[in-house]
Design a binder for these strands. Structure first.
Lengths: 333, 333
DNA sequence: GTACCGGCTGGAACCAGTTCCAGCCTGGGT
DNA sequence: ACCCAGGCTGGAACTGGTTCCAGCCGGTAC
């Protein structure tokens, strides 16, 4: 690889001049600029972004920290983020988080301005200590899918979403309903599932049909796990007539388990999810829609705004959720 | 942020000694090591991975270059890559490619050892010139979902996959079949679609039912695009009795378009896809399965092997494809 | 008592950029 | 003819690490 030194030598100029040409400084004469540019093209010289970042103390990348980035909902958010960031001068780099260790590591990396110019943290919460560090860091951060006091975020009202689900099922006449959600084994600080459960539970209680604690199951956020949890629920002496799953992905696991037992959906069991991912419309899943793609775009726009204007004050945004009734819920037998 | 200088000063040692402590060199006495470590902990010092990479001339990241990374098949491959890489000492960073410009930029970046220690290039081809540069670069590269002469790769036999699809449809009695595939507008060098088409066409010709050129449609690799292309196909005076889509995602677009016209699948139209993504089993889609997740794992393992042992010779791997017959194909009316 | 050896240490040089400062040269004003 | 301003340029210093080289110090051998 050619370096800026090589270019300077070959062009018979100083490194400063080459740097000025690279960065479009006006303090270079047209003839010198042309000569240097010629040498750059000839040598196929590419400046090292690494050395540049070290020297400048900032890089041209936006880091996205996201747990389980292959979940459909995460992918959809990433699509929104990527669509906005690709229009900017920044590169997007994705940091996957699968373990609690990695979470710590990502967060500590976060404050290093030279690794990333800005940060989008997806689905992870931060404790007050971490919030303080992030707020004090020179790298702006935006939280996505999580409300954080004191830092910009894009989130939804999970509590209201859970309530909507309960009200829909109650409206159809269900009284014995279940919940399939996430546990937070890895300690990521996921709270969406719990918040939705709280809203769900409250609405049920308010309607005089309190949630049976034995009908609340949690596990990893995968179809397979939801399948297993549901199989267990359906084996109980008094099985539920409806299940609210905390994501569409999990709802599909629930439906699978029901079909495996020869149950008709929604005849024998109503099932609803959360998110409204791509395939849900296709499959006729009743769900609570949250604007996944849009939330990604919005978070990216907020971050770019912060990067553009370091002093900018950016407000957190709460996006609406919406009940989408399709074919997997109906009145109980 | 504290630097290694700050640590050296605070501990009353030289920077060399701090560096040795950081890297576990045996050339440090236990007492000095303890004192330096104490200062490191006290100051909360974190070495700059950037400076480290610049100094060493190599970084601890694996770069994955992938176009349209939110496609289900790309996501599934990424899952395999991520699962392997997270077990190693390397970080995975994802470089999205959406435009031809970005493709160039990613490739030129590729050769810079200081940005990434190794490279996985997904679904993109390289011309001989690029192959030469990559082969000569100090950064090992593995191609995934593309066979490249002279560099390690993980690929499938797309031609055979296309043939399988044709043979399945012919076996059911179809004679007038269509193809919905990808164009390569962005100039990424996608060839899977064309290779599958070639295999499909050959098998049809061999059976005496040559492919009608007006029944071959290509567009972007999205459900929506496939939907539109199919609508057009079905509007023709002599519509096909079966459609082979080049991906499952596109097959769903085909099915949507058929349903929109009140056609029964597979009664009025047989539809098959390619990939066997997660939801395909669920939806009963007939398809040609390729091992997406496994291919990601394999590519990552090959790359880690190359990183471990610079001299290692790694052979390209061809993975098998397999016909999976489900409910969206049947005999024509 | 001196030479030597080896463990440990400090610091300079280096990686590839950016930026600041000093200095050159030229042109215009007096 | 001389001075000065201002455009352009070269190069040193700096970013935060690693590594090599020289040197210090203690102990052992002769």
């Amino acid at each position: 690889m050619a370096t800026i030194q090589d270019v300077a030598r070959a062009a018979g100029v100083g490194v400063g001049t080459v740097s000025r040409v690279l960065n479009g400084s006006p303090l270079v004469s047209d003839t010198t600029r042309a000569r240097v540019q010629g040498v750059i093209d000839e040598l196929g010289y590419r400046p090292s972004s690494l050395a540049r970042a070290l020297s400048l103390g900032r890089s041209a990348t936006v880091a996205v920290i996201v747990p389980h980035f292959t979940r459909p909902s995460a992918v959809e958010r990433l699509r929104g983020l990527a669509d906005v960031i690709k229009e900017s001068d920044y590169d997007l780099v994705l940091f996957d988080v699968e373990t609690s260790d990695q979470r710590e590591q990502r967060f500590s990396m976060a404050a290093q301005a030279d690794r990333a110019a800005g940060l989008v943290i997806v689905s992870l919460s931060a404790d007050p200590d971490e919030v303080g560090r992030l707020a004090g860091a020179s790298v702006p951060a935006v939280f996505l899918d999580r409300h954080v006091e004191g830092l910009p975020d894009v989130h939804i009202d999970d509590h209201a979403g859970g309530r909507m689900a309960a009200e829909h099922l109650l409206g159809l006449g269900h009284r014995r309903v279940a919940f399939v959600g996430d546990d937070d084994e890895a300690g990521f600080g996921f709270t969406s599932s719990d918040d939705r459960l709280a809203g769900y539970r409250e609405a049920l209680e308010a309607a005089g049909a309190p949630l049976d604690p034995t009908l609340v199951r949690t596990g990893p956020p995968s179809r397979e796990a939801a399948h297993r949890l549901t199989a267990d629920l359906l084996d109980r002496p008094e099985p539920p007539t409806a299940v609210f799953a905390v994501s569409d992905l999990q709802a599909f696991g629930v439906i699978e388990a029901a079909r495996e037992r020869g149950l008709d959906v929604p005849g024998d069991l109503s099932v609803m999810g959360f998110d409204d991912i791509d395939v849900s419309a296709y499959l006729g899943l009743t769900t609570v829609r949250q604007p996944l793609y849009h939330s990604g775009r919005l978070a990216a726009e907020m971050l770019l705004h912060l990067l553009d204007d370091a002093g900018a004050e950016v407000e957190g945004v709460a996006l609406p959720v919406e009940l989408v009734v399709r074919k997997t819920t109906g009145p109980p037998r």
